[in-house]
Nucleic acid binder design. Structure first.
Lengths: 170, 170
DNA sequence: CAGTTTATGTCAGCCTTGTTGACTTTCCAA
DNA sequence: TTGGAAAGTCAACAAGGCTGACATAAACTG
């Protein structure tokens, strides 16, 4: 099983063994298991506040670019406005997010974290960064560069747009 | 924001700029966007069969180690037996998975893909591998090694056990 | 052999988070 | 002034998590 021709061949004398189906399968499983770990710590925290991952995602991207419109957030998160709205309504009602009417275009709502929202964001992101920091440290800077490179290639091109690519130098 | 002390320091003269909160944030977002791409192709296929990601995961791990018991699968997938059972029931009813009573221990059920199950598995994994292969090829073997290293560090230790580590050499 | 533990399955009910469809309000712009 | 975009809301539904309770069969243990 899984030793179909693809990837077993060689081109231009370079070994392409890292492209075998079995290597790809390992990569796939690594993504699966790692993503579980990646979300585990924030999930535990969110439970205490009766929130879910959807709330975390909204909080994260509002923190990243405060004043973002709902439409923009919808595009980034890739969910329907009804789905996002339910989450935002809860966060606004609980005083974690503030929705301000746009000044140029008063149809738009610009989203900001309140003080309380900042606090939860910090708690969540510190937990998540803690794990990432440990992983980065153990793997080293070169591995991290490869990690980021591969992840960026896995993304849909439209998502790569939202992902502010790390430009090195300086 | 996000320029707290951690990671900005230097130890033993080595630059630890890759551990800044901002770099970590980028890694976190990369995981988020990449995971979306990672599941996008199989998701599209599954929709045609009225299955979901949960079915894909079960199919994947039954394919990976045929004859696995339900308990083992539960451990790998990290869901409740009720949740897995719902999925397995559908797959068995649809003739994609076969459940055989254990020979040593007749309480156990050993799971196998049927011919039809193999076919769907192939369709799903070829789609998913296609994206991974392209990403791997574009990033190159060294980036892939780093990618795998970091992912393995992100996992929970218990999950690392299930993840058959790639041992290089020959 | 009796009692306990283990593996599995199943029913019922709940929650989160995604979906679609329909409809309203606001308001910009042609 | 009218069309359409942006945003919000209501309703209904589905997938796939969860807990709790319970049933069965098999294996294990004293």
């Amino acid at each position: 099983m899984s030793d179909r021709g693809t990837g077993q061949t060689h081109t231009s004398g370079e070994s392409l063994l890292f492209l075998t189906d079995d290597q790809l399968r390992r990569g796939i499983e690594a993504m699966f298991f790692a993503y579980r770990g990646f979300t585990a710590d924030p999930d535990r925290i969110l439970q205490q506040y009766a929130y879910g991952r959807a709330h975390h995602r909204a909080i994260h991207f509002i923190k990243r670019s405060p004043g973002n419109t709902v439409n923009n957030l919808l595009d980034i998160l890739g969910v329907t406005k009804q789905s996002l709205n339910r989450v935002l309504r809860a966060l606004i009602a609980d005083g974690l997010v503030e929705s301000r009417v746009g000044k140029q275009d008063r149809r738009e709502r610009h989203l900001y974290l309140t003080e309380t929202g900042q606090e939860l964001e910090k708690e969540l992101s510190e937990a998540q960064r803690g794990r990432m920091r440990a992983a980065y440290r153990d793997a080293g800077p070169e591995a991290v560069a490869g990690f980021r490179q591969v992840l960026e290639q896995i993304m849909d091109p439209e998502m790569r747009r939202h992902f502010q690519t790390f430009k090195e130098g300086s």
